[in-house]
Design a protein around this nucleic acid. Structure first.
Length: 605
DNA sequence: ATAGGGTTAG
């Protein structure tokens, strides 16, 4: 046992000033001494001294010691890449390990091109990469979004037989995910014999980064059932954002439970994503209560709650919280201001909107982005100030994008201004944004004006460009499952009972004086056909399904991809009285809380 | 003998 004590320095141990030349110390021990000297370094100065000492000992020419000099200098917190490079260049015959170190260090330094350069240098010199070489390279390709290069290097790794290395596979999943090639990520993932937590995290994050939220939740479910580890914080955060996008409240709540069980203290990121999940799932109160309990908040926490309040139509409260943020001494950034302006826009606070638009420039030195201009156009557009909005766009110092023109176009739709709608649409089509919705709005406006020729022209144009109208759908969560309904749905396995329920609801609604508002059914068909069409709107089907499958009095929450039509709005208000239910509908832009026959949007939308 | 993967929020 005493023989090893030299390896483990005690507090009495200090390296001798001169190398112990005594023959009883083996080469190994001298190397170990160099290593322990390097490990003690806490800054570049100490390292330089150690370097000099090792050179003095004549050990620089030992490849193990030279390699470790590079490792210490390149990979430590205090390291200097330049200095490490200069040492590397002095190495007589750098080997695989040395190149791996340089590659890894450059990736750590976010110098991805350089990392790849070292790889090619390595190949040129005929030095064989090993399985340790590749994960860093794929990380570099991931950051650079260099998909083709990544695929090529993937080919190399494959040829060398590292295809089945767990670390190589995990970094490949990530690389393809970051490049948006989700199919390749899946292919790697599915071929794996053995998966680690990192593999699952990588595949979930990959789906999240391309917005495949539903798949995120599916994979997370598989992970829980296949694996026996505790879910990690970062994975749960990704899952929470998937829940937020899908409006999957029950699963979101389960995720919160999992967090509370497994993680002792929730940090700002977790809390912020919790708030976002609650707010986007329609539970503003719960989001607020998490927000109120936070010990520490940052710009992002404020942004989620402010834009959350905005989409729920609580503009004044959003502005109050923004003032709290200023009082707390947090510097508002451009994204918070997007929330603030959208709060003004949703609540119809025209005057305040202009004030804050001014303040963000003058008081906080923020250069308004196209998003801020978009909010202002929205603000004016919603209030019916269509001409002013157009003038505002014309006066913009930056080029208006499709979002700006699109908000003008939808304002024109609401306020029936075909003349300016044509201008907005012209710009949208010029921008070539490929959004079928733009064509649909304009064509619907022509239809309202009975200008069927123009309607047909637009439809032809859409077909020519290969654009298809996005089908509207509504999601509703029942029993922790998300059910999807499209308009006139016949695919849901319980659609028969749903249509029966619709029929029953219709009867009750008639007693309340409901008559279908067919004015927005923009098909050239007869009244009866129009009424039938309205009946089958996806939101109504989803509500019917929820009424069947949830208990009396429990709230109904619906998430939809498009905005709702006037008829669905009126219909849902009445249903909230008749069936005594609170119904929350999240559309593209905002929330509608239906309760006792009124809607939180006060019909301002 | 030294080393590698996933990392989350507006």
């Amino acid at each position: 046992m005493t023989g090893t004590s030299v390896l483990k320095p005690t507090k009495f141990f200090s390296p001798p000033a001169d190398p112990p030349q005594s023959p009883e110390l083996s080469l190994r021990l001298k190397e170990q001494e160099c290593l322990s000297l390097l490990k003690k370094c806490k800054n570049l100065e100490e390292f330089k001294q150690a370097h000099a000492q090792i050179v003095k000992w004549g050990f620089f020419w030992n490849s193990f010691c030279a390699s470790n000099l590079v490792v210490a200098c390149a990979l430590s917190d205090w390291g200097s890449m330049d200095y490490a490079c200069s040492i590397f260049q002095q190495i007589d015959e750098p080997g695989t390990f040395d190149f791996n170190t340089m590659i890894r260090a450059h990736v750590k330094d976010m110098n991805f091109e350089e990392a790849l350069f070292f790889y090619y240098e390595m190949l040129e010199r005929g030095i064989e990469p090993d399985n340790f070489t590749y994960p860093s390279l794929f990380k570099a390709c991931a950051w650079l979004q260099a998909q083709e290069e990544g695929m090529q290097i993937h080919g190399h790794a494959f040829k060398l037989g590292f295809e089945n290395d767990l670390y190589v596979q995990n970094s490949l999943i990530n690389m393809y995910g970051k490049c948006g090639e989700i199919k390749h990520s899946c292919a790697v993932f599915e071929q794996m014999d053995e998966k680690s937590v990192a593999s699952w995290s990588a595949i979930i994050a990959a789906h999240a980064s391309v917005g495949m939220w539903y798949e995120c939740l599916m994979i997370f479910g598989n992970m829980s059932s296949e694996g026996c580890w505790r879910p990690e914080e970062s994975t749960l955060v990704t899952v929470l954002s998937a829940c937020a996008y899908l409006g999957a409240l029950d699963l979101g709540k389960c995720t919160q439970g999992s967090l509370l069980r497994n993680i002792s203290e929730l940090n700002v990121i977790v809390q912020t994503s919790l708030i976002d999940m609650y707010v986007k799932c329609g539970c503003l109160e719960k989001g607020l209560s998490v927000f109120r309990k936070m010990a520490k908040r940052n710009q992002m926490s404020y942004t989620v709650i402010i834009s959350g309040l905005a989409t729920h139509g609580h503009g004044e409260e959003a502005l109050r919280i923004f003032l709290e943020m200023l009082e707390e001494g947090l510097d508002p950034d451009d994204v918070v201001y997007v929330g603030v302006l959208s709060a003004c826009s949703h609540a119809g606070l025209i005057h305040e909107g202009f004030q804050f638009f001014d303040r963000l420039k003058s008081e906080h030195g923020i250069k308004p982005t196209v998003q801020h201009y978009g909010c202002m156009v929205d603000l004016m557009g919603k209030a019916g100030m269509i001409d002013e909005a157009l003038e505002f766009i014309k006066s913009m110092p930056i080029k208006p994008n499709d979002v700006v023109w699109r908000s003008l176009l939808s304002a024109c739709r609401v306020h029936c201004n075909l003349e300016i709608a044509e201008i907005a649409a012209k710009h949208l089509f010029q921008l070539n944004s490929q959004n079928p919705g733009d064509y649909v709005i304009l064509s619907n406006m022509y239809a309202r004006a009975q200008r069927w020729q123009e309607v047909a022209k637009i439809r032809v144009e859409m077909a020519r460009k290969g654009l298809h109208q996005v089908p509207g759908y509504s999601l509703v969560e029942v029993g922790r499952r998300i059910h999807k309904f499209v308009s006139q749905d016949t695919s849901h396995h319980q659609c028969e009972s749903v249509y029966e329920m619709i029929h029953q609801m219709e009867w009750q609604l008639k007693f309340e004086g409901y008559s279908p508002d067919t004015s927005h059914v923009l098909l050239d068909v007869d009244e009866e056909e129009k009424r039938q069409r309205l009946k089958g709107h996806c939101q109504k089907l989803a509500i019917a399904f929820a009424l069947i499958h949830t208990s009396q009095g429990s709230p109904v929450r619906i998430t939809r991809n498009l905005r709702m039509c006037n008829d669905c709005h009126t219909y849902t208000k009445l249903i909230s009285i008749i069936y005594e239910r609170e119904i929350t509908v999240r559309d593209r832009n905002q929330f509608h809380h239906f309760k006792d026959g009124t809607c939180s949007c006060r019909d301002y939308w």
